[in-house]
């Protein structure tokens, strides 16, 4: 093979490589383009929740039953004898994050860190009903359950237990924070809110 031939072969193969790399480059660019072209529209998909801010509970908001036969009726003091509890809403602001667990227990059992001025003199207390773990609704347990032989709030999802006499502090289970407490008072024989919850409600996004 003459020098010349070799050279021309080399050159040809070089040009081959360039052609290939051009094609590779083109395919690469096209790939990135298609990918980006698909990502952009996906990124702009709108959520349908149209999420509004929670309406804050204000002083004087009346509480109504959230469930049961008396749903939507204003809760009167006689509706909840001792050891009874119910899910409640602030009237006119019935949204999930305002769900309240209202109960009636012997007033002398309440201790710090319960906000003592948030409960009423005859032993009504109210907490957010949204578990701080993953947002299930907690339940009122006036009786013994597992090893807890006193009234407590219980979350059926992962069995968190909240101590109603000590500011809903977590006695068992994975809940990270106590339930926020709602200040309540009695006026004209009905139970009304005295302000908003004293902490963020339910699980917090992004691990906050």
């Amino acid at each position: 093979m003459s020098e010349k031939d070799k050279k021309s072969i080399e050159e040809e193969s070089k040009s081959c490589i360039t052609r290939r790399s051009i094609i590779k480059g083109l395919i690469g660019t096209a790939g990135v383009g298609v990918f980006a072209g698909l990502t952009l529209p996906f990124g702009t998909i709108k959520n349908t929740s149209g999420k509004k801010k929670r309406q804050k509970i204000a002083k004087g908001d009346k509480l109504v039953f959230a469930v049961g036969d008396k749903a939507n009726q204003i809760i009167k003091v006689d509706d909840l004898p001792l050891h009874k509890g119910t899910l409640a809403y602030p009237k006119g602001k019935e949204e999930h994050h305002n769900l309240i667990l209202l109960f009636h227990s012997p007033v002398n059992n309440f201790q710090e860190p319960t906000k003592m001025d948030f409960i009423t003199k005859n032993g009504f207390a109210a907490y957010s009903a949204i578990c701080t773990h993953m947002g299930c609704t907690v339940e009122w347990y006036p009786h013994k359950q597992f090893s807890f032989d006193f009234p407590h709030l219980f979350c059926p999802c992962h069995q968190s237990v909240f101590d109603i006499f000590h500011g809903a502090k977590v006695l068992a289970g994975p809940a990270p924070r106590p339930l926020p407490q709602l200040p309540i008072m009695i006026s004209d024989n009905i139970i009304v809110a005295a302000g908003d919850f004293n902490g963020p409600i339910g699980p917090q996004p992004g691990g906050k």
Partner: peptide, 11 residues
Amino acid sequence: EIANSIPYIGN
């Protein structure tokens, strides 16, 4: 809620 609690981007 599990997805929601991923730090920063969860929500």
